[in-house]
Design a protein around this nucleic acid. Structure first.
Length: 214
DNA sequence: ATCCCGAGGG
DNA sequence: CCCTCTGGAT
C-alpha cells in the first residue's frame, strides 16, 4: 500500500472510532495483565466471562496466590489452556510480590521476564496501561497485515516492525486497537466483510466466500 | 474442521 | 524450526 492509502485508511478508522479501547474488562493494571495473559488463543468474550467472577475473588497478586492452583484453575477452566495459564499466572504473581512490591512493572524487560508474558502481552500492557506506542501483533493484526499488504511480514515480530515504520506517527498510540477491531469485525478469518473495508480497493486478498454472499 | 488479543519447551 | 496446551463458538 502507498503512503497516502495508509494515511487515508487510518483517518477512516479514527473517524469511525475516535476513542478505541480494549474489549477485555479490567479495573486495574494487574487485572489488565491477568486478562491479557489469559487471552492467549481464546476470545475476549470467554476471558471476560471468567474474569468477571475471578476478579471478585482475587484482584491482587497476593489474593491470586491465596486462591491457589486448583482454585484458579476452576475459575479459568472455560477459557482453555488452563493448566499452563494458571501455573504461569501464579508464578507471575509470586514475582510481582517478591520483586515488584505487588505492582506491575513498566519496562518491556521486566514484563517479559514474567512467566506467561511474551512480547505480545508486554506490548499490550505497555500500550493500554502505560500509553506507549507499542504494536502488539495478535492473530487479527497478523492476518490483516498480510492480507492487505500493509505489513506482509512472515513473523509477528516482522509485522510489528513494519507497522511501527508505516503507521503515521499521529495514529501510532491507537493503531493497535483500530487494527485489532478491524481485523476482528471486518477482516475476519472466515468470510471477511470486504464490502465494508476502507482499504478493499488497495487490497490484493480475494476471499473465496464472504458472509454477504454465503 | 477452524478459529480465538500466544507462550514455552524440545 | 516444530510441537503442545484447551474449551467454546461457528
Amino acid at each position: 500500500m502507498k503512503r497516502a492509502d495508509i494515511e487515508a485508511f487510518f483517518a477512516t478508522l479514527a473517524a469511525a472510532n475516535p476513542h478505541p479501547q480494549t474489549e477485555l474488562e479490567y479495573a486495574s493494571v494487574f487485572e489488565l495483565l491477568t486478562a491479557v495473559l489469559l487471552s492467549a488463543q481464546a476470545t475476549d468474550v470467554s476471558v471476560n466471562k471468567a474474569t468477571r467472577s475471578l476478579f471478585v475473588l482475587a484482584n491482587t497478586p497476593q489474593k491470586m496466590l491465596d486462591l491457589g492452583l486448583e482454585g484458579l484453575e476452576a475459575q479459568i477452566k472455560t477459557i482453555g489452556l488452563y493448566h499452563s495459564k494458571a501455573r504461569h499466572l501464579l508464578q507471575t504473581c509470586q514475582i510481582l510480590v517478591a520483586q515488584h512490591g505487588g505492582q506491575v512493572p513498566r519496562t518491556r524487560e521486566a514484563l517479559q521476564a514474567l512467566p506467561g508474558v511474551g512480547r505480545k502481552t508486554a506490548n499490550v500492557v505497555l500500550n493500554v496501561a502505560f500509553g506507549e506506542p507499542t504494536m502488539a501483533v495478535d492473530t487479527h493484526i497478523f492476518r490483516l497485515g498480510n492480507r492487505t499488504g500493509l505489513a506482509p511480514g512472515k513473523t509477528p515480530l516482522e509485522v510489528e516492525q513494519q507497522l511501527l515504520k508505516r503507521v503515521p506517527a499521529a495514529y501510532l498510540v491507537h493503531a493497535h486497537h483500530w487494527l485489532i477491531l478491524h481485523g476482528r469485525y471486518i477482516c475476519q478469518a472466515r468470510a471477511p466483510h470486504c464490502w465494508q473495508c476502507a482499504v478493499a480497493s488497495h487490497c490484493d486478498f480475494k476471499p473465496k466466500t464472504t458472509s454477504k454472499s454465503s
